[in-house]
């Protein structure tokens, strides 16, 4: 009888517990549904570009139901836009923890790692995102960027091609594919892709600059000058193209025009050491060795680890008959890893 009573009691307790569990489950489902509804409101704000409102809704959704992966992901994206990368990274990690099949969460985490120059881990996460079905053009594009940065140009080529296949007017992807081809010494292919990039987005000034540099590789200096000039016309402060055009003039032995361009670079970007280095080299050609020495001094002042500037100052000083100083420069260049330095140091000895 006693056992019977206990059994009855246990059954009662058990049934009570089940009822309680069911009740909790019901409550969770109810909260989840509410959170989803609020999340959807956030999505609608995001669609309208109202990211602050969207952020609030995602906060609210997570307040109601904190195990909901999607609001973490979307909030992370907004935090990236507001440049709060640490918070974004936390949100993204949480989204992945809650749902490791969420390909976009891997993509966003990869993106942040890319911004933090953690190329290898970014590559891994972009690959995960693609494997988990997030096969948007950007997934391939960014993975291509990482492969490029990691110098795996063949893989980068495939990725940029995939991005273009998925989005035929993806101008950036054309430019990056062109640069990848350039790295693989396919200069004509690169020129074609740079043109494509510009046909879809003529504001990518860098494509003109890159195309010009490829043309130099193919010996088309006139074409290169034209493209550098287009880049400079579109962005007069784009000192890279000015510097490169100066280089082209230099290679064409047009030292006065080279000097003009390098001088302009130093006016636009006073702390750009390479321009002073190039100015110095040009002045050597113009036999202004003292002027050249001063320019190299400036380059070294701006970048004390600038091995090439030490090498070149050594040349200027050699021309000036300052042999001990020249040798000291070459020795410094050697310390800084300039390959040719050693053979000139032999002359000093």
């Amino acid at each position: 009888m006693k056992h019977f009573k206990i059994t009855i009691l246990l059954l009662f307790i058990s049934s009570f517990a089940i009822a309680q569990a069911n009740e909790i489950e019901q409550e969770i489902l109810k909260l989840k549904k509410q959170a989803k509804l609020i999340y959807n409101e956030g999505v609608r704000f995001a669609e309208q570009g109202k990211i602050t409102d969207a952020h609030k809704k995602f906060d609210a959704a997570l307040f109601i139901y904190s195990d909901f992966a999607l609001p973490y992901l979307e909030r992370a994206k907004i935090l990236i836009l507001t440049n709060e990368l640490d918070l974004a990274m936390n949100d993204c990690a949480k989204a992945i923890e809650l749902n490791d099949k969420l390909g976009e969460a891997f993509y966003i985490r990869a993106y942040m790692k890319m911004l933090m120059n953690d190329h290898q881990n970014a590559l891994t996460d972009f690959t995960h995102s693609i494997q988990k079905g997030f096969t948007e053009p950007q997934s391939y594009y960014y993975r291509g960027l990482m492969n490029f940065e990691l110098k795996d140009y063949n893989s980068a080529l495939i990725d940029f091609t995939m991005a273009i296949d998925k989005d035929y007017d993806f101008a950036y992807a054309y430019n990056e594919r062109a640069s990848t081809k350039r790295m693989l010494s396919d200069y004509h292919g690169a020129i074609h892709d740079y043109k494509q990039a510009l046909s879809y987005d003529s504001t990518i000034v860098i494509a003109y600059d890159n195309m010009a540099s490829c043309k130099i590789k193919t010996g088309d200096f006139e074409g290169a000058l034209e493209d550098y000039t287009k880049a400079i016309t579109r962005d007069p402060d784009f000192y890279i193209s000015l510097n490169n055009r100066g280089n082209a003039y230099y290679q064409m032995s047009n030292y006065e025009l080279a000097l003009n361009d390098f001088t302009k670079v130093t006016e636009i970007k006073k702390d750009y050491a390479p321009a002073y280095n190039n100015l110095g080299i040009t002045k050597i050609e113009l036999q202004n060795y003292l002027g050249a020495e001063k320019d190299f001094d400036m380059a070294i002042e701006l970048d004390s680890e600038y091995g090439e500037a030490y090498m070149n100052r050594g040349y200027a000083r050699e021309f000036l008959g300052k042999f001990p100083a020249a040798c000291a420069d070459w020795r410094k260049a050697q310390e800084l890893g300039v390959e040719d330095a050693e053979k000139y140091i032999v002359e000093c000895e």
């Binding site: 430019n175 860098i206 540099s213 890279i240 510097n243 490169n244 080299i281 070149n312």
Partner: peptide, 9 residues
Amino acid sequence: KLSTEDIFL
């Protein structure tokens, strides 16, 4: 050592 620089990407 002429300094050239390109922003490839």
